[in-house]
Amino acid sequence: MKAATLARIAQAQQKREALVVVTRLADGAQCVFDAAGSGGGLVLAPEQAAEAAALFASGRSTSLSGPETLFARAYVPSPRLLIIGAVHIAQALAPMAAAAGFEVVVIDPRGAFASAERFPGVELCDEWPDEALARLGLDGATALVALSHDPKLDDPALELALPSQVFYIGALGSRRTHEKRLGRLRDAGLGDKVGRIHSPIGLDLGGRSPAEIAVAILAEVIQVRYRGEAG
Protein backbone atom coordinates (compact mmCIF):
# COMPACT_ATOMS: atom_id res chain seq x y z
CA MET A 1 0.00 0.00 0.00
CA LYS A 2 1.37 3.37 -1.01
CA ALA A 3 1.76 6.11 1.58
CA ALA A 4 -0.70 8.27 -0.37
CA THR A 5 -3.38 5.55 -0.20
CA LEU A 6 -2.84 5.12 3.53
CA ALA A 7 -3.16 8.89 4.02
CA ARG A 8 -6.29 8.95 1.87
CA ILE A 9 -8.00 6.23 3.96
CA ALA A 10 -7.11 7.92 7.25
CA GLN A 11 -8.37 11.25 5.92
CA ALA A 12 -11.65 9.76 4.65
CA GLN A 13 -12.29 8.13 8.02
CA GLN A 14 -11.63 11.39 9.82
CA LYS A 15 -13.92 13.30 7.47
CA ARG A 16 -16.52 10.50 7.58
CA GLU A 17 -16.37 10.00 3.81
CA ALA A 18 -16.88 6.69 1.98
CA LEU A 19 -13.95 5.21 0.06
CA VAL A 20 -13.28 1.97 -1.86
CA VAL A 21 -9.77 0.60 -2.35
CA VAL A 22 -9.34 -2.08 -5.04
CA THR A 23 -6.28 -4.36 -4.81
CA ARG A 24 -5.00 -6.79 -7.46
CA LEU A 25 -3.92 -9.72 -5.32
CA ALA A 26 -1.37 -10.95 -7.87
CA ASP A 27 0.94 -7.97 -7.28
CA GLY A 28 -0.69 -5.60 -4.78
CA ALA A 29 -1.42 -2.85 -7.35
CA GLN A 30 -4.20 -0.59 -6.09
CA CYS A 31 -6.62 2.13 -7.03
CA VAL A 32 -8.88 4.29 -4.89
CA PHE A 33 -12.51 5.25 -5.58
CA ASP A 34 -14.12 8.17 -3.82
CA ALA A 35 -17.10 10.41 -4.49
CA ALA A 36 -15.01 12.42 -6.96
CA GLY A 37 -13.85 9.44 -9.04
CA SER A 38 -10.90 7.07 -9.09
CA GLY A 39 -7.14 7.27 -9.08
CA GLY A 40 -4.06 5.11 -8.62
CA GLY A 41 -1.84 2.73 -10.54
CA LEU A 42 -4.43 0.01 -11.17
CA VAL A 43 -6.82 0.55 -14.11
CA LEU A 44 -10.14 -1.31 -14.01
CA ALA A 45 -12.48 -2.38 -16.79
CA PRO A 46 -15.69 -0.28 -16.86
CA GLU A 47 -17.87 -3.08 -15.44
CA GLN A 48 -15.43 -3.65 -12.58
CA ALA A 49 -15.32 0.08 -11.86
CA ALA A 50 -19.13 0.09 -11.72
CA GLU A 51 -19.09 -2.85 -9.28
CA ALA A 52 -16.58 -1.04 -7.07
CA ALA A 53 -18.60 2.19 -7.15
CA ALA A 54 -21.73 0.26 -6.08
CA LEU A 55 -19.97 -0.71 -2.85
CA PHE A 56 -20.22 2.87 -1.55
CA ALA A 57 -23.87 2.34 -0.76
CA SER A 58 -23.69 -1.19 0.63
CA GLY A 59 -20.44 -0.72 2.55
CA ARG A 60 -19.58 -4.36 1.74
CA SER A 61 -16.07 -5.52 0.91
CA THR A 62 -15.89 -8.21 -1.77
CA SER A 63 -14.02 -9.59 -4.77
CA LEU A 64 -14.85 -8.12 -8.18
CA SER A 65 -15.72 -10.24 -11.22
CA GLY A 66 -13.17 -10.85 -13.96
CA PRO A 67 -10.19 -13.07 -14.73
CA GLU A 68 -7.85 -11.44 -12.18
CA THR A 69 -8.52 -11.57 -8.46
CA LEU A 70 -9.42 -8.01 -7.49
CA PHE A 71 -10.45 -7.34 -3.90
CA ALA A 72 -12.52 -4.24 -3.20
CA ARG A 73 -12.41 -2.95 0.37
CA ALA A 74 -15.17 -0.47 1.20
CA TYR A 75 -14.53 2.02 4.01
CA VAL A 76 -17.71 3.68 5.24
CA PRO A 77 -18.16 5.95 8.25
CA SER A 78 -18.65 4.15 11.57
CA PRO A 79 -21.97 4.80 13.30
CA ARG A 80 -22.00 7.82 15.54
CA LEU A 81 -24.22 8.80 18.44
CA LEU A 82 -24.60 12.49 19.31
CA ILE A 83 -26.02 13.01 22.79
CA ILE A 84 -27.55 16.38 23.65
CA GLY A 85 -27.37 16.92 27.40
CA ALA A 86 -24.62 15.66 29.71
CA VAL A 87 -27.23 14.26 32.08
CA HIS A 88 -27.36 11.12 34.23
CA ILE A 89 -28.73 8.91 31.45
CA ALA A 90 -25.98 10.20 29.15
CA GLN A 91 -23.38 9.05 31.69
CA ALA A 92 -24.69 5.51 31.30
CA LEU A 93 -25.41 5.69 27.58
CA ALA A 94 -22.06 7.08 26.36
CA PRO A 95 -19.84 4.14 27.43
CA MET A 96 -22.48 1.57 26.39
CA ALA A 97 -22.73 3.05 22.90
CA ALA A 98 -18.93 3.22 22.62
CA ALA A 99 -18.72 -0.48 23.54
CA ALA A 100 -21.27 -1.21 20.78
CA GLY A 101 -18.98 0.43 18.21
CA PHE A 102 -20.42 3.95 18.05
CA GLU A 103 -18.35 7.10 18.00
CA VAL A 104 -19.95 9.07 20.81
CA VAL A 105 -20.02 12.83 21.37
CA VAL A 106 -21.79 14.38 24.34
CA ILE A 107 -22.84 17.97 23.66
CA ASP A 108 -23.65 20.34 26.51
CA PRO A 109 -22.47 23.94 26.96
CA ARG A 110 -22.99 23.73 30.71
CA GLY A 111 -19.52 23.03 32.09
CA ALA A 112 -20.83 21.68 35.38
CA PHE A 113 -22.62 18.90 33.50
CA ALA A 114 -20.12 18.16 30.70
CA SER A 115 -17.10 17.56 32.89
CA ALA A 116 -14.34 14.99 32.42
CA GLU A 117 -15.01 13.75 35.97
CA ARG A 118 -18.58 12.88 35.07
CA PHE A 119 -17.63 11.50 31.62
CA PRO A 120 -14.21 9.82 31.82
CA GLY A 121 -12.88 8.91 28.38
CA VAL A 122 -15.90 10.37 26.55
CA GLU A 123 -15.62 13.03 23.84
CA LEU A 124 -17.28 16.13 25.26
CA CYS A 125 -18.28 19.22 23.36
CA ASP A 126 -19.05 22.46 25.22
CA GLU A 127 -20.49 24.31 22.24
CA TRP A 128 -24.19 25.10 21.92
CA PRO A 129 -25.93 22.26 20.07
CA ASP A 130 -26.58 24.23 16.86
CA GLU A 131 -22.89 25.21 16.61
CA ALA A 132 -21.71 21.73 17.53
CA LEU A 133 -23.98 19.96 15.04
CA ALA A 134 -23.01 22.35 12.24
CA ARG A 135 -19.39 21.49 12.88
CA LEU A 136 -19.82 17.72 13.41
CA GLY A 137 -22.23 17.23 10.48
CA LEU A 138 -25.40 15.15 10.44
CA ASP A 139 -24.88 12.25 8.03
CA GLY A 140 -26.74 9.01 7.42
CA ALA A 141 -24.51 7.06 9.82
CA THR A 142 -25.38 9.37 12.72
CA ALA A 143 -28.04 9.06 15.42
CA LEU A 144 -29.07 11.96 17.65
CA VAL A 145 -30.69 11.76 21.07
CA ALA A 146 -31.92 14.82 22.95
CA LEU A 147 -31.78 14.08 26.67
CA SER A 148 -31.26 17.48 28.30
CA HIS A 149 -34.92 18.16 29.25
CA ASP A 150 -34.09 21.79 28.40
CA PRO A 151 -35.77 23.22 25.27
CA LYS A 152 -32.92 25.72 24.93
CA LEU A 153 -30.60 22.78 24.21
CA ASP A 154 -32.90 20.11 22.79
CA ASP A 155 -34.97 22.22 20.38
CA PRO A 156 -32.12 23.71 18.29
CA ALA A 157 -30.63 20.23 17.95
CA LEU A 158 -33.93 18.73 16.84
CA GLU A 159 -34.52 21.57 14.40
CA LEU A 160 -31.23 20.73 12.69
CA ALA A 161 -31.62 16.94 12.92
CA LEU A 162 -35.19 16.68 11.58
CA PRO A 163 -34.42 17.82 7.99
CA SER A 164 -31.02 16.02 7.98
CA GLN A 165 -29.87 12.54 6.89
CA VAL A 166 -29.49 11.18 10.46
CA PHE A 167 -30.87 7.66 10.73
CA TYR A 168 -32.38 8.04 14.20
CA ILE A 169 -33.78 10.90 16.29
CA GLY A 170 -34.97 10.39 19.86
CA ALA A 171 -36.07 12.81 22.55
CA LEU A 172 -36.51 12.20 26.25
CA GLY A 173 -39.54 13.54 28.05
CA SER A 174 -43.02 12.79 29.24
CA ARG A 175 -45.96 12.70 26.85
CA ARG A 176 -46.95 16.21 27.96
CA THR A 177 -43.41 17.54 27.51
CA HIS A 178 -43.30 15.96 24.08
CA GLU A 179 -46.65 17.45 23.04
CA LYS A 180 -45.35 20.92 23.92
CA ARG A 181 -42.13 20.19 22.05
CA LEU A 182 -44.05 19.10 18.97
CA GLY A 183 -45.99 22.37 19.11
CA ARG A 184 -42.80 24.42 19.13
CA LEU A 185 -41.28 22.40 16.28
CA ARG A 186 -44.46 22.76 14.21
CA ASP A 187 -44.28 26.51 14.81
CA ALA A 188 -40.71 26.34 13.51
CA GLY A 189 -42.07 24.92 10.25
CA LEU A 190 -41.11 21.29 10.84
CA GLY A 191 -44.65 19.89 11.07
CA ASP A 192 -44.07 17.39 8.25
CA LYS A 193 -40.89 16.05 9.90
CA VAL A 194 -41.75 15.76 13.61
CA GLY A 195 -43.01 12.18 13.17
CA ARG A 196 -39.36 11.12 12.90
CA ILE A 197 -38.78 11.74 16.60
CA HIS A 198 -38.85 8.64 18.79
CA SER A 199 -40.67 9.67 21.95
CA PRO A 200 -41.10 8.09 24.41
CA ILE A 201 -37.47 7.34 23.62
CA GLY A 202 -36.15 3.77 23.59
CA LEU A 203 -37.64 0.31 23.40
CA ASP A 204 -40.27 -0.43 26.03
CA LEU A 205 -38.21 -2.63 28.34
CA GLY A 206 -39.91 -1.46 31.52
CA GLY A 207 -36.68 -0.29 33.19
CA ARG A 208 -36.55 2.86 35.28
CA SER A 209 -32.94 3.50 36.28
CA PRO A 210 -30.66 5.69 34.11
CA ALA A 211 -28.66 2.64 33.00
CA GLU A 212 -31.82 0.69 32.16
CA ILE A 213 -33.16 3.60 30.12
CA ALA A 214 -29.78 3.86 28.39
CA VAL A 215 -30.05 0.19 27.38
CA ALA A 216 -33.54 0.83 25.99
CA ILE A 217 -32.30 3.86 23.98
CA LEU A 218 -29.24 2.07 22.61
CA ALA A 219 -31.35 -0.99 21.72
CA GLU A 220 -33.75 1.20 19.75
CA VAL A 221 -30.91 2.99 17.93
CA ILE A 222 -29.39 -0.37 16.94
CA GLN A 223 -32.78 -1.73 15.88
CA VAL A 224 -33.46 1.26 13.60
CA ARG A 225 -29.93 1.08 12.21
CA TYR A 226 -30.37 -2.52 11.03
CA ARG A 227 -34.12 -2.87 10.56
CA GLY A 228 -35.10 0.66 9.61
CA GLU A 229 -38.08 2.49 11.05
CA ALA A 230 -40.76 -0.03 12.04
CA GLY A 231 -43.37 2.28 10.48
Binding site: E103, A116, E123, L124, C125
Partner: peptide
Protein backbone atom coordinates in the same frame (compact mmCIF):
# COMPACT_ATOMS: atom_id res chain seq x y z
CA UNK B 1 -12.85 20.63 27.52
CA UNK B 2 -11.63 17.21 26.40
CA UNK B 3 -12.38 15.41 23.22
CA UNK B 4 -10.66 17.33 20.49
CA UNK B 5 -7.25 17.13 22.12
CA UNK B 6 -4.00 15.42 21.17
CA UNK B 7 -3.66 11.65 21.20
CA UNK B 8 -1.35 9.86 23.59
CA UNK B 9 1.94 8.58 22.15
CA UNK B 10 1.59 5.06 23.46
CA UNK B 11 2.75 2.18 21.30
CA UNK B 12 -0.75 0.75 21.19
CA UNK B 13 -3.88 1.77 19.35
CA UNK B 14 -5.91 4.12 21.50
CA UNK B 15 -9.68 3.84 21.71
CA UNK B 16 -10.25 6.68 19.30
CA UNK B 17 -7.31 6.07 16.95
CA UNK B 18 -8.14 4.09 13.85
CA UNK B 19 -5.95 1.28 12.61
CA UNK B 20 -4.92 3.51 9.68
CA UNK B 21 -3.88 6.32 11.99
CA UNK B 22 -1.76 3.79 13.88
Amino acid sequence: MGGHGEKPKANVQTDTESLFET
